[in-house]
């Protein structure tokens, strides 16, 4: 399926081909550590087990900030 991902840390948006089902699998595909990000869809934070849908627009928020 195709989904759009906006990454807060780099302030970039990319459309990706995602072959999995859950948020956890998406983060694995993007090589992002589960402990360092939160994922939101329509301003709602999702758990790692949430199922993703075709054409989802996701926001990947960085947990780590500061120095």
């Amino acid at each position: 399926m195709k989904i759009s991902v906006h990454i807060e840390r780099t302030n970039t948006t990319q459309k990706i081909d995602f072959s999995g089902i859950t948020v956890r699998q998406l983060l694995c595909q993007l090589d992002l550590n589960l402990e360092t990000v939160l994922v939101a869809r329509n301003n709602e934070v999702l758990t790692e087990e949430e199922t993703l849908q075709e054409n989802d627009l996701l926001e990947i928020l960085s947990v780590i900030s500061g120095g």
């Binding site: 807060e8 900030s65 120095g67």
Partner: peptide, 10 residues
């Protein structure tokens, strides 16, 4: 509204 900000030296 907490902006993402990372110290450039971190």
């Amino acid at each position: 509204q907490v902006q993402f900000a990372e110290c450039p030296y971190s």
